[in-house]
Design a protein around this nucleic acid. Structure first.
Lengths: 220, 220
DNA sequence: GTATGATAAGACCGATCGGTCCAAAAAACA
DNA sequence: TGTTTTTTGGACCGATCGGTCTTATCATAC
């Protein structure tokens, strides 16, 4: 049973995901949350800005609990987890028709980061967690990888590329872009893996595979 | 000698690059352009939206004339031009301290694309031009490249990655991210080049190079 | 019963902003 | 000199929005 506050945050996340932060008035949020009167809203939040932080945080938690969790799945070898994670991103975007973003920096976070310093730092913090998570994964996978891999740079490359592809597919309203980029990204990661390890638990169909979206499902 | 209209557009591009489209009032633009009275502004523009289109277009032209032109430089072999172009992106971001974006989808275009359909289509159009330009480059470079390269996918990969890295470096206020990604990107492109061609006119210091920003200058 | 706090409903204020309109000065042109 | 266009400067309108405040209803706990 959720309390009112989280109910409001979830409603706000939904409506702001559709319209953006600026474009959403607190009355929109109130209406979406099904409550009546501003008094009620301001009983739970000091200001719209405070709501903004809560929405950002909520988005982050959703992303961390569903997406980043895949990167830690103890049942799979590290590189397979990365594969799974990329799938998860692509599938999510496909399901949503490339609009609103589950991604840490979907339209919403992107907009808010640009808005003011406080929001920017929150978004930055998630980038940090995300790349950190990937770095840990590569650290774990280092037996399979070539020797001089800069894990931090590699992690950031992946984040930046996915982020850019997410944005691009949003603008083009076409998942195909993201799918192609995901294929390229797998290939790129593969080029950091020892040749004699490339068959095993590692990245699937590194060349020519175009059907990333029909992969095995993880518990979601 | 610029006419008033373009003077206004340039002022608007500057101030909106700093504050965003929504956050910039027409009075801000008027002030930045050094003219007085709204009447004067509305003498040249029907609405703020019309100004928005003009700003977007202006940004595109700047990007096309300075950035995309590098990709067509007839004095250099194709892959060297790509190298030069990546340099240009990194240097631009470094000069601006990772804030406002010369990039086609700097903060401004990103925000506006999300704003309404018309803006989105304009941004999409530039993506198309940009990837088209890259595709043409790879087509020209095909003798040096391995056989089964999907030039469209490769071009889009580059655009998405640069876009994402630009955004990420903006959020982190740190060019290092972009520099690392650029290095990775060169490596990725390199993996599509025939092994026996990797020395020549092609991509510079593909491995371990960390000083992309001190490259040779092109006429800019 | 009564005090407390959640809920409902909405009037209201102050500020911002996009856009219109007007009138007078200045400049360009005849 | 007279006419037209540009420029100036700002008042003003209507709408939106964030935020405050008030009043009333309802449930719960003590």
């Amino acid at each position: 049973m959720k309390d009112r506050r989280t109910q409001i945050v979830e409603a706000a996340t939904a409506v702001m995901g559709r319209q953006g932060f600026q474009q959403t008035s607190v009355e929109d949020v109130i209406h979406e949350a099904g409550l009546c009167g501003k008094g009620h809203f301001y009983h739970y939040f000091k200001s719209k800005e405070e709501l903004g932080y809560a929405v950002l945080l909520h988005q982050f938690e959703v992303f961390a609990e569903t997406g980043l969790a895949v990167l830690r799945d103890p049942m799979l070898p590290p590189l397979a987890r990365l594969d799974e994670f990329i799938d998860w991103i692509v599938e999510g975007q496909a399901e949503r028709g490339c609009c609103e973003g589950v991604s840490p920096c979907g339209a919403l976070a992107t907009e808010m980061a640009e808005q003011h310093e406080g929001f920017r730092k929150h978004v930055d913090a998630l980038f940090e967690r995300w790349t950190g998570q990937l770095q840990a994964l590569f650290w774990e996978a280092r037996p399979q990888m070539i020797d001089d891999v800069d894990t931090e740079a590699l992690a950031r490359f992946i984040v930046a590329t996915l982020e850019g592809a997410l944005f691009m597919s949003r603008v083009k309203r076409d998942v195909a872009v993201l799918e192609d980029v995901a294929t390229g990204l797998r290939r790129f990661v593969m080029s950091h893996v020892r040749a004699d390890e490339r068959h095993a638990a590692a990245v699937r169909d590194l060349v020519g595979g175009t059907d990333q979206s029909v992969g095995k499902e993880s518990g979601r």
